[in-house]
Amino acid sequence: MRKPKHEFFNKKIKDTTQFIFPFTVVISTWQLLTQCGIISENLIPSPLSILYTIFSLLSPKPLLLIHLWKSVYRLTLGYSLGVTLGILIGVAMGINKSLEKTFSPIISFFISIPTIAWVPLFLILLGLGDETIITAIFLGSFFPVIYNTLNGVKSVKKELVWASEIMGANQTTITFKVLIPGSLTSIIAGLRLATGYAWRALVGAEMLAAAKWGIGYMIYAAKAFYEIKVMFAGLVIIAIGGLLLDHLLMGYLEKETIEKWGLVAKR
């Protein structure tokens, strides 16, 4: 039985207030403490002044938007490259046994390397700037996607493959109609994992290798001028960005694919 509409909205409102309430408490206490001078404004700026800083970064010249645009551009390029290649190689390894046996230990070795450790190497090979950062993001998202895709393809039931073989499906049909849809839950879990990795690689690599723009660079450069407000503003933006990526984007993807098709239970 479907719930009446107003009940649904009431629940939404209740959820939202429950989500916002702790922030109001924390932020107002924080504001009060800085106002009274218990916390030094030089060490921890008050929430209002952080908000003010965000606006000042936006309004005469939209610096913040340029920083954000640069970061999003790098993230999109590196991430989509990593995901595409990762899924392709993962599926190939899932289909071909000897390919899997040969390369899966190599991949689990590469997964355990912190992405940021590559950055100094790329700095030598590619120099400061976009190439290094994008490559780091690519590596950060590539390996988790391969790993999850491979596991997904391997976990597809043998009976399903046999059944479609008996019904005369060729390898292409089996791959696209059986193996990939069957492993989608795992692939999307990999995509979700990879967004986290890519997001972290972005911020880290931008601190070490950005030439002029980028949200990570903004925080790192602010340190040199002791602009603690800008650093906090950047942190707020990064938090919101990460939340949007993880909950809205990936949540939407999950809802539109695996939840809609009934592969996993709705949450």
Binding site: F21, P22, F23, L43, I219, K223, Y226, I228, G242
Partner: peptide, 25 residues
């Protein structure tokens, strides 16, 4: 109910983003 939203917001922040601020402190 109090801590869950806060953790949800803070969790996706890459640890390294805290580094410049903590270096000042």
């Amino acid at each position: 109910r109090f801590f869950d939203p806060i953790i949800t917001l803070l969790m996706p922040i890459p640890g390294i983003a805290w580094a410049p601020i903590l270096m000042l402190w």
